[in-house]
Simulated scan of single mutants.
Amino acid sequence: MAKKVDDSVLDAALNEIAGNCDLMTVCAGEPAGYAEANVGGANFLADVAMSAGDFTLSDGDVSGRKLAVASKSGVTVDQGGIADHVALLDTANSRLLYVTTCTSLELVASSELTFNGWDIEIADPAV
């Protein structure tokens, strides 16, 4: 029996992120929730403002749909540490929308950081 999903279903999940994310943070370790990933939180190292224009929805690389997250440069590091996670936050509603790993990088306070562009991808269901 085949499995199918309409693109609009996958888009709804990805649009929830694109339409509500207003802050991207880099963290030392996986944040347990919103407070830990947000400015001043236990895992927080640096942040950059985000808007709907920083996200692009398209077909997935293999299947399904993907949300491309724009790169951001010149981001000031607030706190030194080993960055290994990136979080997308909805500060208006105190929600941790998405967390992923990133290549480990030692950050020094007051230095500048570049967030490379990256994708969130939801695959079509497997047969």
Rank of each mutant, 00 (worst) to 15 (best):
residue 24 M to A: 14
residue 105 L to P: 12
residue 52 A to L: 10
residue 104 S to E: 15
residue 52 A to D: 13
residue 101 T to Y: 06
residue 88 L to Q: 02
residue 69 V to M: 01
residue 63 S to C: 03
residue 116 N to Y: 14
residue 91 T to R: 11
residue 47 D to T: 15
residue 78 D to R: 02
residue 91 T to W: 08
residue 116 N to E: 12
residue 88 L to K: 01
residue 54 D to F: 02
residue 75 V to E: 03
residue 120 I to D: 00
residue 61 D to E: 14
residue 108 V to Q: 04
residue 43 N to W: 07
residue 68 A to M: 08
residue 98 Y to W: 14
residue 112 E to K: 12
residue 101 T to N: 09
residue 96 L to N: 02
residue 43 N to D: 05
residue 37 A to Q: 01
residue 40 G to H: 04
residue 121 E to N: 12
residue 123 A to Y: 09
residue 124 D to N: 09
residue 52 A to E: 15
residue 85 H to N: 12
residue 67 L to P: 00
residue 123 A to K: 11
residue 24 M to H: 05
residue 45 L to E: 01
residue 118 W to M: 01
residue 71 S to P: 14
residue 103 T to W: 08
residue 70 A to R: 08
residue 24 M to I: 15
residue 89 L to M: 05
residue 81 G to H: 00
residue 90 D to F: 09
residue 31 P to V: 10
residue 57 L to E: 00
residue 84 D to Y: 05
residue 39 V to F: 09
residue 106 E to R: 07
residue 52 A to F: 13
residue 35 A to K: 06
residue 48 V to L: 01
residue 111 S to H: 07
residue 120 I to C: 01
residue 117 G to E: 10
residue 113 L to Y: 14
residue 79 Q to L: 15
residue 86 V to L: 07
residue 98 Y to H: 10
residue 54 D to N: 09
residue 25 T to E: 05
residue 66 K to L: 11
residue 65 R to P: 10
residue 82 I to D: 14
residue 102 C to W: 00
residue 34 Y to Q: 03
residue 111 S to C: 10
residue 102 C to K: 05
residue 116 N to Q: 12
residue 47 D to M: 14
residue 29 G to V: 00
residue 122 I to F: 00
residue 84 D to G: 05
residue 66 K to P: 13
residue 24 M to Q: 13
residue 37 A to E: 00
residue 113 L to Q: 07
residue 42 A to T: 11
residue 93 N to K: 07
residue 63 S to M: 05
residue 46 A to I: 01
residue 86 V to C: 06
residue 46 A to T: 05
residue 36 E to A: 15
residue 92 A to M: 13
residue 37 A to M: 02
residue 84 D to K: 04
residue 104 S to W: 02
residue 71 S to C: 11
residue 30 E to D: 11
residue 93 N to E: 06
residue 82 I to G: 13
residue 36 E to H: 07
residue 124 D to C: 03
residue 119 D to A: 06
residue 88 L to I: 00
